[in-house]
Amino acid sequence: MIGAGNVLFVIAGILALAGALITVSSRNPIRGAMGLLATIFGIALLFLKLNAQFLAAIQVIVYAGAVVVLFVFVIMLLGPDALGEVGSFPKGKSKVSRGIGGGLLAILAGVALVLLAGRGGAHVRFGDVQPDHGSVEAVGGLLFSRGLVAFELATALLIVAVIGAIAVARGKQTKSHLTPAQRGDGEFFHGTVVARDDRGRPPSKGDG
């Protein structure tokens, strides 16, 4: 008997896998971001199937609402440069070695998966769970009782991310009346880098 639940699993699984393949294979990152979005929705559907309603909602809100949107913003900001590969083809040797590395990893992972599932037909079937399994109350209650310490630690993480992201990405610092050379630490200036390397010599290669 194939019920609606089985169909949901198949659809969600195919959605997730197809999205993942598009993400890693598409040349245009915006397509990749859409693939990622498909994967995220697929996994959110699977969460529903696994009685994880709260996480399904969070998954959609945070990943689709924040992470993918952030990616799309950055891709739009970069414009055609986001394609990356244009004009700077991967060096031949490194492309080959990368391919071999990726292939080896895939084979290793395949072997690992076969070993993981290698218990023949003995499947672990899902049993019954309480009705509030995965509800906001159940997860939230745990989060603010036993998990409170980890929750507090996560606040430090978010502060670090906020300070760090601002510190690293804040645009050109000032319009200085000093030339970059006078300021001396290789500031970004009018689209090109007028840099000196750490020893104060002009850059020999690659800094520009």
Binding site: G164, A167, V168, R170, Q173, P180, D185, G186, E187, F188, V193, A195, D197, D198, G206, D207, G208
Partner: peptide, 9 residues
């Protein structure tokens, strides 16, 4: 590491 925004290295 990334704080020195002006430095490519």
């Amino acid at each position: 590491i990334g704080l020195r925004r002006g430095s490519a290295r």
